[in-house]
Design a protein around this nucleic acid. Structure first.
Lengths: 340, 340
DNA sequence: AATTGGCAGTCAGCGCAACAGAGTGCCAAC
DNA sequence: GTTGGCACTCTGTTGCGCTGACTGCCAATT
């Protein structure tokens, strides 16, 4: 069994390795940290840690490096998430405080997060599964063009253009608008599609065609809204930390472009201590990201929607700092969007 | 002076070097191409090409590599832009043909272009400097929330949310909407901001506050619209071609994230032969992209707006293929958006 | 004047051997 | 449980010589 001091040794191995990118040996541990014991003792502890597969030696005679399992223990038991400094805190508030609308808030958030962590930052748009229709607007642009605008109570707005055959009858458009809103405002997105498909039935045959065109466009908009989107920033950090990705960042860049992968990954993350979750190294192998870790947390909006935000980087990353930053930003964002 | 055959030698050096990534020597040239002369003769030609600084030798005794100037001559005089194959052409039409709206067209375009060229693809949103206001819509969302929607004749739609103090008077809102549209529809974006600042003067003092709030939001939207945006795809290709970027793709990823840089670069590009322009290697040094080339072309929309689209990759890229692809996509896109 | 074969010279890349340095594992002693 | 000591292992570096690829030049040829 690994002793108390053994875990402490694991902690400094993780810390030193993350800081220096070099395998850490028993000698350098006693030099840099005051354990009050000799290098030989540390060596004994390290032998135990190696038995538990928490650390490993790249070559027969070199220092040790944390394994994925070692990082896991570090994250779960050893990392101290000290709160951000007041200055950092103030930076967050100052930076996000000036935002105009939801898009702007999230765009600022993702940049902020990448600056705080020096990693690739990810922010998921609030999932709209549980949000409701707030308003539907039909705007005639010309004789044969119509714009449909679709607004949810989480502040998301989506518009689409629509070409129609016959010239638009303004009066009828007003009636259609009123009836659409009457039928849909307050309805959850999951049910909205169903309501829409039956909607045209209540109209006289000569109107059906137009109404069906409009409702099917709206159905598309509902479905498009359900698909989550992802914002990203800080991809240049991948080049900086390239060696840590086992030689090539190609699969990482691919996953980033293929947002679906990252969304699935987010979806599999569970909330853990302090609301911050981490997926480490090979735990992501199924996504082609075996040398990559993701740290994420949930945030919530006034509508009761939840979404995730986090950072992605090499397995060898500064978990303490990144988890603290993710937690702080998630909390602040929840507060900002909650008092809506 | 460089002879006719000398230029032919330059062409095969560029082609072979791009294909193999290895300096090409006189022997391999006579082996792979039928010049009908001996290696010594080719060597004489190569000596001349070197005098003109069109090629260079990495080491005293190795094959030659094109210089930036060599690529420039290749692009301007030697590259044959054979049209795409019917199959490729059909792929373009099939892929872009199904698009729904402007956003969707451009998103598909950029992905298509990166697939055709295996490089990072860039598509600029149509510059709105020369486009006009088509419609303004004010949508009350609740007692104290208003959404402003701003539509241009190039099909761009932008919305913003607005909190106001006093409850909204629906009738007045209708009047405001009508007067805004009367004053602005058809006005160019460059003049719209000016019209808006004076707009509130025509209203009674008790209405001024609300009107000013609305108009200043609209001014913001006008200005935001003038800022060009850029879509990108295929960044994973940077990892594939990494060695060609002098070791690190960091500055490239940085420039990509800092869209302003790329937009300035686009802005400096002149149209050349066949409508396709290229900026090669050190010509981009001012942007921190000294080992990067950009191939781009213009496309136009029905509103008379023009914007650029292109690809970005290492100096050592397949200019023939990329220029042909950029030209074809730009032409097809112009046709698609022109018959609007 | 252009082309050619021949030949000496240059340099990168590779394999090999030797070496220094860092770190471990183990053991006997405390 | 802890410590100092010692033999052992392995990496990374350096120096050396060799090979192969190419060039540059020259004198001969067409």
């Amino acid at each position: 069994m690994v002793s108390e001091r053994g875990l402490e040794v694991l902690r400094v191995i993780v810390q030193d390795y993350v800081a220096s990118r070099e395998p850490v040996g028993s000698k350098s541990i006693v030099d840099r940290h005051s354990f009050g014991v000799s290098a030989a003792t540390i060596r004994n502890d390290m032998a135990l840690l190696e038995d538990e597969e928490l650390i490993a030696a790249p070559h027969t005679s070199s220092g040790r490096v944390p394994t994925d399992k070692g990082y896991r223990v570090f994250v779960d038991q050893l990392a101290d998430l000290r709160p951000l400094s007041p200055a950092q805190r103030q930076a967050i508030e100052g930076f996000l405080g000036e935002s105009i609308d939801l898009d702007d808030v999230l765009a600022r958030t993702v940049r902020l997060l990448s600056q705080l962590t020096h990693q690739v930052a990810l922010v998921q748009y609030p999932s709209l599964a549980s949000s409701r229709v707030r308003h539907i607007e039909l705007v005639p642009l010309s004789d044969t063009r119509l714009m449909t605008v679709f607004i949810t109570d989480s502040g998301r707005v989506e518009q689409r253009l629509l070409d129609i055959q016959s010239p638009i009858d303004e009066t009828f458009l007003g009636e259609l608008r009123a009836r659409l809103n009457a039928a849909l405002v307050g309805v959850g997105l999951t049910d909205a599609a169903a309501s829409l498909t039956a909607f045209a039935d209540g109209f006289p045959p000569e109107r059906r065609h137009l109404v069906t065109q409009v409702t099917s466009t709206l159905v598309e908009q509902v479905l498009a809204n359900r698909q989550d989107r992802l914002l990203m920033a800080g991809t240049a950090n991948l080049a900086r930390t390239e060696e840590d990705f086992g030689g090539s960042i190609f699969p990482v860049l691919e996953a980033i472009e293929e947002q679906v992968t990252l969304l699935r990954l987010f979806g599999e993350m569970e909330v853990e201590t302090g609301g911050v979750a981490a997926r480490i190294g090979r735990e992501n192998a199924g996504f082609g990201l075996g040398e990559t870790s993701v740290v994420s947390s949930e945030y919530s909006t006034s509508g009761g929607n939840v979404a995730r935000l986090g950072v992605l980087g090499p397995t060898r990353m500064d978990y303490s700092n990144n988890m603290a930053a993710v937690r702080a930003v998630a909390r602040y964002l929840s507060r900002l969007l909650g008092t809506d």
